[in-house]
Design a binder for these strands. Structure first.
Lengths: 226, 226
DNA sequence: CATATACAATAGTATTACTATCGTCCTGGG
DNA sequence: CCCAGGACGATAGTAATACTATTGTATATG
């Protein structure tokens, strides 16, 4: 993944008021927001605390993001975009579609183990945020409207990529998109359970989440075992 | 499901300060809370609005529940308990374990179509709440502590029931609990996508969620198609 | 008849989620 | 070199939220 570290990941849709990647303060906002949300959880995280951590005023933060929900959408969108890059990278130059599918599922369901080299944000902390908080980005009454505005387009792109890997192997499968999003979301939920509510999964499952989802998809598609 | 309508579902753990099933006002709190959360979404729902809807003071609501998170945990717990009763009912008196498993998966992943006959709460509205808000009940920093207090025991019981159906068919499957919780959570997420973010699933998938999960589990367990 | 309960009503506090305004530094263009 | 605009810090203020506390009163219970 080191080659990816230099890719500059951008969140396309204007979830922000002012591009945080364009200024010094913007980058610090992302950096501190990731650290604070990871530490406090989304509920206890406030723009006031963020501003205090930055040594600036709340109003400065509000120049970048309308509210903390938008900031979350931004961070989670960044995460999905990164995950998409990683997926593309991990499945490049593999000619056999079945092998590509397996690699793709593993790439998508693997935990993030290193901090990355983005400087302005800690990838491991962002991963923990994605696991614990990403569902809150879309589980709202505004989801539909926000989706139309493209707020979740990076999730959609990621999901479509995985779907395409499925379709390449089984063009006749009736619900490849459903299968793809089940894998993505399911792997996050299982990660949360394993880390925070261990009695809801098998103890050993933590290490085997990618295996489990490879097995799930492969058997559903009636592919030979891996 | 009519026979179930008279079963009195109770949330065991003291998520509440005062049992809402024990008084007139308590029942009205549940009834109005379900309606309001369904209408407004959890974020916009407040105890102030609930009290106004009840024609009483906020402090009266606070006598029953510490805060809105606890109230959500209560409602979601009630929902999982109801779902467990339904599962038990739907799989009763079926001797063939494979058929039981299929019925069980269908029971668990079917949408709720009627209001139920509980009087004090509208089951369809509660179902919509479970789909949209239940993840927020456990996706918190306090999840682990709350879990130890038994806040999520009804989810655990439900998940264990489904796991047992799997184990009865395939005693050697390595991760039946993981599989069970993937089905439960996955069916909720897919329902949300189908209803609120339709571009994230196939259009026809909405009608076929139970079929999809039956197929998923059956192929994973290498059982003959249904 | 005494007492506990259930509840309504009022008041008050700390925090949150903003919005608005103003002054200042810094930079780049004319 | 000046000045216009952007970027930011600082202060102030508002409305809503999430509580806590207190008191009065009707009703049921023992």
């Amino acid at each position: 993944m080191n080659r990816l570290a230099n890719v500059n990941i951008r969140v396309n849709e204007p979830v922000y008021l002012k591009d945080p990647l364009g200024t010094e303060l913007g980058l610090r906002i992302l950096e501190h927001a990731v650290r604070l949300i990871d530490e406090l959880g989304l509920e206890r995280f406030t723009f006031g605390k963020l501003a205090a951590s930055l040594g600036t005023a709340e109003s400065s933060v509000y120049r970048y993001f309308d509210n903390k929900h938008r900031l979350l959408v931004y961070l989670v969108g960044w995460y999905w975009s990164w995950r998409e890059y990683k997926l593309v990278f991990d499945t490049a130059n593999i000619s056999d579609p079945t092998t590509r599918l397996e690699k793709g599922i593993r790439s998508m369901t693997e935990p993030v183990v290193d901090k990355g080299e983005f400087g302005y944000l800690d990838l491991r902390a962002l991963y923990r945020i994605a696991v614990s908080e990403s569902a809150k980005a879309y589980l709202t009454k505004e989801a539909n409207d926000e989706h139309k505005e493209g707020y979740f387009s990076s999730f959609k792109r990621l999901s479509d990529r995985l779907r395409d890997l499925v379709v390449a192997v089984r063009p006749d499968h009736p619900y490849p998109t459903l299968l793809a999003s089940t894998v993505i979301d399911g792997s996050m939920v299982q990660r949360f359970f394993a880390d925070h509510l261990p009695s809801l999964t098998e103890k050993q499952a933590r290490q085997r989440i990618p295996d489990h989802f490879v097995h799930l998809v492969f058997s559903t598609l009636a592919l030979p075992k891996r």
